[in-house]
Design a protein around this nucleic acid. Structure first.
Length: 491
RNA sequence: GCUCCGAUAGUGUAGUGGCCAAUCAUUCAGGACUCUCACUCCUGUAACUCGGGUUCGAAUCCCGGUCGGAGCACCA
């Protein structure tokens, strides 16, 4: 039966349409510097770019902008980390390129620009050039003839100059009202090796981002670029090259910075230092805002995607709380997570009059599937719960039965029955428990670690997300005999 | 100093001149349900940066202020 549709327009769900995008013709790229692993922040670019490509049935390129072996030196392992996190997101790039493979192309185009009089070798030191530039004045090298510039360029390539002695600049408009756009640097000299062994110390003239990115975006056929606001001027600078060479600049969108409230001020280099110093166990330490870390904690790729997609592509800086991501994740994980008992900070409790046996407890609330917990009459409860008990008080041990407390230290009780009627009639509090001889469980989480005892069914949950009742969702990271390590996701 | 960009509830968004006494999500508060402090459900609190202008009509257009962000590197 068809219902009368409401006249109200549907709220737009998901990403907004890309300007000038044609189905099947969109080419987009995500271009990180592999100087560390993907973070929650960078995953925005991974998600949004790849989602747009999917939406338009286009082509997606992963490009490594890895041409700074000095300040933002790539990490060899990080190239694979990106591919791996993409795989986790369900994305396989159609093409993967490394800028460090394409020096020769950059050199060719540089030469073209030099010969056409659009680039020159500048011998000013940084400060001198800046001084002139701020006064809208050209430096003497700007007027050199193309042939001379070419000769200087060849000498640069040949290694005749030292670092900082010469730089290749793109001519724009030295009088441009925006100082950020006046004659910008395209290549510098750096007598350093590249971390990739196949590149090593093959090159001493290195392209800077604006040049490298400009050339790549054209050669790769990029139709749409989404990048940070910090690169807004970059597009304007690069357009000069596009104009000189008769290329068409891609459609460009910008977004503001994402700040995750819980993580505040962590920088990649700072984290790296702390890992080396042993403050963190690695890039996937649950306290870190890396994709590796949240994966390990059991955040689902779909949840991260929704989180990023709903944030959209705005130019304002956003400040998000992990709570939103957790709320998203809970929706995915709550229906599938098996319920398990884990008792943090355990206190022993003896139940007199209980023979022990096999307790049946539901794997999911209100559903028939059961799990079995074998236990004797010695169990553990959390120290917190124990603290709320007093002699004579009654409590229900979930799925096991009702108990009247007979002693507080040591904690002991008398078994009453296993009837929910009794529980309700007496308005007992329901607490969780575990057999004393359960597994030794360590939970590692962003706000600290917990030691405790868990039921043995956890063994079967390796690599899965479970809900430790009254504790939170965790991913079972390892099971080694009697020892289990779980990573805490969220409540 | 010069230049560019942005501004809707605590947070993130929807909204492109009348359907907006403003959407959705999350957070927070209260309640219902529940053998978990989870889930689900109900209710509530809470926003168009300010001042002018254009217009019959402005969150939406224009100008100015304020606030915020970014760039002016031989980093990305």
């Amino acid at each position: 039966m068809l219902e009368e549709l409401s006249v109200k327009k549907e709220p737009e769900k998901g990403l907004k349409a890309l300007p000038n995008a044609e189905k099947g013709k969109v080419v987009m790229r995500f271009a990180p510097n592999p100087n560390g692993p993907p973070t929650i922040g960078s995953s925005r670019g991974m998600v949004v770019n790849s989602e747009y490509v999917k939406m338009y049935d286009g082509k997606f390129i992963l490009r490594f902008d890895d041409t700074d072996p000095d300040q933002k030196r790539p990490m060899l392992e990080a190239y694979d980390w990106y591919v791996d996190d993409f795989k986790w997101l369900g994305v396989t790039p159609d093409e993967i390129v490394k800028a460090s493979d394409r020096f020769d192309t950059y050199y060719e185009i540089a030469e073209q620009l030099i010969l056409a009089g659009h680039a020159y070798v500048c011998f000013c030191d940084g400060e001198t050039f800046k001084g002139l530039k701020d006064k809208k004045q050209a430096c003497p090298h700007r007027e050199a003839a193309p042939e001379d510039n070419l000769a200087h360029w060849k000498k640069m390539l040949a290694g005749d100059y030292e670092e900082r002695e010469a730089v290749l600049r793109i001519k724009t408009d030295i009088q441009h009202k925006d100082p950020a756009l006046r004659d910008w640097g395209a290549f510098r000299i750096l007598k350093k090796d590249h971390p990739r062994p196949e590149i090593g110390n093959k090159y001493i003239v290195w392209p800077l981002l604006d040049f490298e990115g400009a050339i790549e975006d054209h050669l790769l056929g990029t139709t749409h670029i989404i990048r940070g606001k910090d690169l807004q001027d970059s597009g304007k600078r690069q357009k000069y090259i596009y104009d000189y060479l008769g290329w068409t600049y891609p459609v460009t969108l910008h977004w503001g910075r994402v700040r995750i409230e819980e993580f505040g001020k962590l920088s990649t280099s700072g984290i790296r230092r702390d890992i080396e110093a042993g403050v963190y166990t690695g890039w996937d330490d649950p306290r870190l805002p890396t994709v590796q870390a949240i994966r390990r904690r059991g955040i689902q790729a779909e949840a991260l995607k929704k989180f990023m997609i709903e944030m959209g592509v705005g130019e304002t800086d956003v400040s998000m709380s992990m709570d939103s991501l957790y709320a998203e994740n809970r929706k995915f994980v709550d229906p599938i997570a098996h319920r398990m008992f884990f008792v943090a900070d355990p206190v022993e409790m003896k139940i007199d009059g209980y023979a022990g046996g096999v307790v049946e407890a539901p794997l999911y609330p209100n559903q028939p599937e059961m799990r079995k917990i074998e236990t004797g009459n010695l169990i553990v409860v959390t120290r917190e719960d124990a603290g709320n008990l007093s002699v004579g008080s009654k409590v229900r041990l979930k799925d096991l039965g009702n108990v009247e407390i007979t002693s507080v230290s040591p904690l002991a009780g008398k078994y009453i029955d296993n009837s929910m009627e009794t529980t309700k009639k007496e308005k007992m509090k329901i607490i969780h428990w575990a057999p004393v001889d359960g597994l030794k469980v360590t939970v590692l989480g962003p706000e600290g670690n917990f030691e405790g005892i868990g039921e043995r069914n956890i063994t079967a949950e390796l690599d899965k997300v479970v809900q430790f009742e009254r504790f939170g969702f965790c991913r079972i990271d390892s099971v080694d005999g009697e020892n289990v390590v779980a990573y805490f996701a969220h409540k």
